[in-house]
Amino acid sequence: MTDWEIYCIKYADRGGRIRGDSFVFDDNHDAPHAMDYFMWLLRRGDEVILVDTGYDDAEAQARGRPVRLDPVAALEPFDIAPEDVTRIIVTHLHYDHAGGLHLFPNATLHLQAAEMAYATGPCMCHGPLNMPYTAAHICEAIKRLYAGKVVYHEGDAEIAEGVTVHCVGGHTRGLQCVRVRTQVGWMVLASDASHFYENVFARKPFPIVVDLQDMLDGFDTLRRLASAPELIIPGHDPLVCSYFPEAMARHISRLDVGPCRAVEM
């Protein structure tokens, strides 16, 4: 089979952050540290798999975190209608990764069973743990479940030939990364297993964490799954857009061709 194309789609960004918001152990914790927000599209011929959905304008207003493009508008350069998306890999159910599920009514969701259990379980009694979740997004996932449109995975699983998911946990109980075969080798969409390159390469944990050991072990998993370290794609790092070439529109970078300059580690 042929390899997959991978597109990184930036739909929002956020300034006003500091390094202490991104790293548990950092000597320069009060320095500015911006964050980008991505969703990803896998494409091979007529096959399309969406990885995460971003969040919409309503969620943006509720959280005071504006989006530059809502998920549907972000996909317009691909000429993909929302109803044409039939497979979504949900890396986890945080608002910025699952906030657009309702926009893709025909999609079957691929989700770790541990993530649904976590998002609906006793951990959500604690404010710091439920803060990144939105109840309506969880309800949408449950509605999809009762409509027969959720496929649960436990650990490693194949979604399609050349596309696998791997539960790493840490940031949430059921966080999964996505391994994709490309022309440059096996690429790993880390999602929030590593928000920034610095998390995985300097082994600095991200502050939102339910299990620190799982997060640290997850850094090793990312390295093991990728054909080369530069093929690990963090979930929120603005550097991604500078390392990989623009494609079709300013908010889209093409990943499967490999970085266009050396990735600093």
Rank of each mutant, 00 (worst) to 15 (best):
E158I: 06
L109A: 02
P32D: 12
T86Q: 07
N130I: 11
A193W: 05
E5F: 09
A113L: 08
C167W: 00
D56Y: 12
A62P: 00
K204A: 13
P71Q: 05
G174Q: 04
A262C: 11
P128L: 04
C177D: 07
M1P: 12
C139D: 15
F104D: 06
D57N: 11
P245F: 03
S22G: 12
E154D: 14
C139V: 15
A247C: 11
E198T: 15
C8A: 15
D30I: 13
Y95M: 09
D30W: 08
R14V: 06
V67H: 07
L189S: 07
Q112M: 12
A119T: 12
E246K: 14
A73Y: 01
D56G: 14
P122G: 04
V48M: 04
A202W: 06
A228W: 00
H195W: 03
F201K: 12
Q61I: 08
G54A: 09
D220A: 12
D13C: 11
H195R: 02
V180M: 04
R181P: 00
C167R: 13
A190K: 03
E115R: 04
V209Y: 01
A141V: 09
Y11M: 07
D3G: 04
Q213G: 10
M124G: 07
M116R: 08
D211F: 07
R254M: 09
C139A: 15
S191F: 00
M39R: 05
V188N: 08
Y7N: 08
V48Y: 01
M131W: 09
C177W: 01
D57T: 13
F25W: 13
L129Q: 03
M131C: 01
G127S: 02
Q112K: 05
S22V: 08
I159H: 02
C8H: 14
I88F: 12
D84Q: 15
D3T: 15
E59M: 09
E246C: 14
Y197V: 09
H153P: 03
L41G: 09
A107C: 02
D36E: 12
D220Y: 03
P66K: 10
G121I: 06
D52Y: 10
L231F: 13
K149H: 13
D220R: 06
E59G: 05
I80E: 08
D96Q: 05
S22N: 14
S191P: 00
D237F: 02
N106L: 02
F104N: 03
T120H: 09
P128A: 11
P234T: 08
V240E: 02
N199V: 13
E230Q: 15
L41T: 06
K10Y: 02
A190H: 01
R65I: 13
N28P: 00
D237H: 00
P77G: 10
F104Y: 14
D70Y: 02
L225D: 03
C167L: 08
Y95E: 07
D56R: 12
G121D: 07
R173Q: 10
L75S: 05
D79H: 12
Q176Y: 00
L212Y: 10
K143I: 01
A58M: 05
E158C: 02
D13Y: 14
H110V: 12
W4T: 10
A98D: 10
G162E: 01
R19L: 15
T182V: 08
Y11F: 15
V85F: 04
M35C: 10
P66S: 11
T134H: 15
D211Q: 06
M35D: 03
R224S: 14
A190N: 02
A81I: 01
H102Y: 01
G155Y: 10
F104P: 10
